[in-house]
Design a protein around this nucleic acid. Structure first.
Length: 804
DNA sequence: TATTTGTTTCCTGATT
DNA sequence: GAATCAGGAAACAAAT
């Protein structure tokens, strides 16, 4: 057996043996010399055959995977069938002598054509009714073919195509397809078959016959039961009458001849004549039926035959016709099994293979991971092995992209098959699980363990299959293993964000540590690099009194940074305003007290140190004193008081007659800590603190949004927190928010586009900062308060709700 | 009156 | 194609 290079596969209901395929696979076809014959130039010859047939039939070409495989334009299946048939020389010219039954004709061995689709297509193309086209294919024929191959049969023709039947007056169009097919095939073979004009059947063609003149155009040898496929296209009249031919046919023919005759006399006679001849040929090698159930015309199965053949005289779509004929193809389980993967699953018996419902299928293409070179490195989960997470439980892949500052993706998101979002009510404080590089630099924001929880084992997919490697093989992202992170017990937790809810003067020692951690985080400083133990005894008020040198003394490396961060914190305008307001309130309460701590106006006028706007007025003397002592003691060195003389004296006033020598140090100059504070306060040209803009006071956009987040009437309906700890919020109804903002500014033309433009101006002011692209938050309408924003800290209840 | 501030408006282009 | 985002540019009103 020669080995060819080619492909064999089943398309629609037409089995194509294309070049380049192991002929052994088709042993069931018989010797199949035709395949070998076309081997020298398989593609060209086959292609030309197809093209010739298609051209002859006036087919229009269109892209089709079937023929694209051999570089051919697409052709309808029935043309393919015809091409095969012609190529196998089954359609011999009328003058051709019938092959001798005793002399197998190797050169006439066929390619196999299941012509269900061909018949269907022909039916559609020619307005033939489905009942006029019948494919009879069964295993008996297969066995007969095998026997034929073994020499048990004496007819070389293993494919029989009979397009016969009358063309009743007025219904000649029933045979258009037959005529066209016949003409094309006859032309292909150079026959003298006349090209039928409209409605004129190609009666001269041996496979079509000429029912009108009752000429037995199909020789007995052509209608051989060893054929795998027999098309009995019997043109029926308008009053069909189903006649089961098994009354005269052999058992092997029972399955092949469910013939519907509308005009019994000529057609039936013709058919019977053919069948009689067939019987003669077949009789010696008639196989026993192996699949009785598919004998569509077996006794008691006439209904099945009708179902298969379709309703008489009803036009059926190709698909319907093919579907009706489909069971006949299913009579070849052995054949189908042989082909295995080469046979489309759709042709398999539904009883054998249950297709996965569409809604349970997984798009394979979604799992393709490409290396930079485009090499696929990720084997997708097989849809038969893995079931996707339901849509409502899925995670948007793009949400997990972490970007480096340069925008380079450094983190491959957790696979949605491995991780699914933890419901909000199961989430916990985000800030507690920070991942650090050895150097302390955060390079990958992992899927937060409070947002993602391990998928149960029985729902998991092999992790190794999803490993993505860099070209060098280096893993670029080690996801946080769900077994490496677990929630810290409640009794061990420390609320690191608590300090934000307080003013610095109210910070406890724990708050100071939490603030330092926050500074370290924001500046990408390893916690362990900070001299936290040196600040362990410091409270907020004490920090307020410390100079930059005090900070440096405690932490030579990061003291200046901590100092600047702290000053940045305490010099925010609102902070100052709040202090001033607090002072004013207390002043109002104490008026006309003469023991007020300080007079902002007076101090401002004196323009000494702008002390009031940056000094914690409410501090009690004892606190001040104790903190000053703490500074000295903890730093174990003289501490220069940052308080200006006025403040110091004020403190002294409050303290009473206590000594103020500690505060009257030379350090109390413009070089003191509060000098840095003053630099942050906007001044007029004359150096006076500039008033806050009146026209925007309380009307700043970000403040408006901040307040909206605190207003139950707008939160969470219009704006809502995404992460109240991190300051991430989301605009729920953008247009409504813009409308509210417009109402506040008496601007009815306000739109979200304008509002968002204004918000974007906050980025450079650090009032807003870009939302980390960690995938934790939605991509749109999400903003995050920056270090310059203040007062946004969500109520504890909101935090608790968020963390719950 | 000039300047500053905080938007507002319009626009283009990119992204989702 | 709509919505959103990003940002440049100019204009505007109020405050300084």
């Amino acid at each position: 057996m020669r080995r060819l290079c080619g492909t064999g596969y089943l398309k629609q209901d037409v089995f194509l043996i294309l070049p380049s395929y192991d002929v052994e696979k088709f042993a069931f076809l018989g010797a199949c010399p035709r395949v070998a014959e076309i081997a020298p130039h398989p593609s060209k010859q086959f292609a030309q055959s197809l093209l010739d047939c298609g051209t002859a039939l006036g087919a229009t070409t269109s892209p089709c995977s079937t023929t694209a495989a051999v570089g051919l334009p697409a052709l309808p299946d029935y043309i393919l069938a015809a091409a095969f048939a012609s190529h196998s020389q089954l359609l011999a010219p009328p003058s051709a002598a019938p092959p001798q039954p005793q002399q197998p004709r190797g050169d006439a061995s066929p390619l196999l054509v299941y012509t269900a689709a061909a018949a269907a297509a022909a039916a559609e193309n020619s307005a033939l009714t489905a009942s006029q086209l019948l494919v009879a294919t069964n295993r008996q024929q297969q066995v007969a073919a095998a026997q034929h191959q073994q020499g048990q049969t004496n007819d070389a023709a293993s494919m029989c195509v009979q397009l016969s039947g009358p063309a009743p007056a007025g219904t000649s169009n029933n045979t258009i397809a037959a005529s066209a097919l016949s003409n094309a095939l006859a032309q292909q073979h150079g026959s003298a078959a006349s090209h039928s004009t409209c409605g004129q059947p190609a009666s001269q063609h041996p496979f079509l016959g000429n029912p009108l003149n009752n000429t037995p155009s199909v020789t007995p040898s052509f209608v051989h039961p060893s054929a795998f496929s027999i098309v009995n296209a019997v043109a029926c009249s308008s009053s069909p009458q189903t006649v089961s031919s098994n009354t005269t046919a052999t058992p092997s023919l029972h399955s092949t001849a469910h013939v519907q005759l509308s005009q019994p006399s000529p057609q039936q006679a013709h058919l019977h004549s053919n069948r009689a001849l067939l019987e003669q040929v077949v009789q010696p090698a008639r196989p026993q039926p192996l699949v009785q159930s598919v004998n569509i015309n077996s006794p008691g199965s006439q209904q099945t035959g009708q179902q298969v053949a379709g309703v008489h005289n009803q036009h059926m779509s190709p698909a319907a016709a093919a579907a009706a004929l489909y069971p006949q193809l299913m009579c070849l389980p052995v054949l189908l099994d042989r082909f295995g993967p080469h046979i489309l699953r759709s042709h398999m018996s539904p009883a054998q293979f249950k297709p996965i419902p569409n809604n349970e299928r997984v798009d394979l293409a979604r799992f393709r991971a490409k290396e930079p070179q485009g090499k696929t490195v990720c084997i997708p989960p097989h849809p038969f092995l893995f079931k996707p997470i339901p849509n409502n439980e899925r995670v948007d892949l793009a949400r997990f992209r972490a970007k480096e500052p340069q925008g380079k993706t450094v983190c491959i998101p957790p696979h949605p098959f491995l991780f699914k979002p933890i419901p909000n009510n199961e989430r916990v404080d985000l800030a507690r699980f920070r991942a650090k590089e050895p150097q302390g630099k955060t390079v990958c924001i992992p899927p937060h363990p409070f947002l993602f929880k391990p998928i149960p084992n029985n729902e998991r997919v092999d992790l190794a299959r999803f490993r993505a490697k860099e070209p060098q093989g280096k893993t670029v992202c080690i996801p946080p293993h769900p077994f490496l992170f677990k929630p810290i017990p409640n009794n061990e937790r420390v609320d690191l964000a608590r300090f934000r809810a307080k003013e610095p003067q109210d910070w406890s020692m724990e708050d100071v540590i939490a603030w330092m951690l926050d500074v370290a985080k924001r500046n990408h400083i390893p916690f362990e690099d900070l001299e936290m133990q040196k600040f362990a005894s410091c409270t907020g008020p004490l920090l307020l009194l410390m100079t930059e040198q005090n900070f440096k003394d405690r932490d030579p490396n990061y003291g200046s940074l901590l100092f600047s961060e702290f000053r940045k914190l305490v010099t925010e305008e609102s902070f100052i305003d709040d202090w001033m307001r607090a002072y004013k309130d207390s002043e109002d309460e104490q008026q006309p007290s003469t023991s007020r701590v300080f007079d902002p106006a007076r101090l401002s006028a004196s323009n000494a140190y702008n002390f009031p706007s940056s000094t914690p007025a409410p501090l009690s003397p004892s606190v001040l004193l104790s903190h000053q002592q703490a500074i000295s003691s903890s730093a174990q060195q003289p501490v220069a008081s940052p308080l200006p003389p006025t403040a110091a004296s004020t403190s002294k006033l409050q303290v009473g007659a206590s000594s103020s020598s500690d505060f009257d140090s030379p350090a109390c100059s413009e070089d003191t800590a509060l000098h840095g504070v003053n630099m942050k306060i906007r001044k007029n040209k004359d150096g006076k603190p500039r008033k806050r803009s009146q026209h925007t006071k309380g009307n700043k956009l970000w403040e408006f949004i901040r307040d909206a987040l605190k207003d139950p009437s707008t939160c969470p309906s219009v704006v809502r927190w995404e992460d109240p700890i991190e300051g991430v919020f989301r605009i729920v109804e953008s247009e409504k928010l813009a409308r509210l903002w417009g109402e506040k500014k008496n601007n009815q033309k306000m739109t979200y586009e304008k509002l968002s433009r204004a918000m974007r101006t906050y980025y450079e002011k650090q009032i807003l900062v870009p939302v980390p692209k960690t995938g934790l938050y939605p991509k749109k309408l999400v903003y995050k308060f920056g270090p310059s924003a203040h007062g946004w800290d969500a109520p504890l209840a909101v935090k608790m709700e968020h963390c719950a």
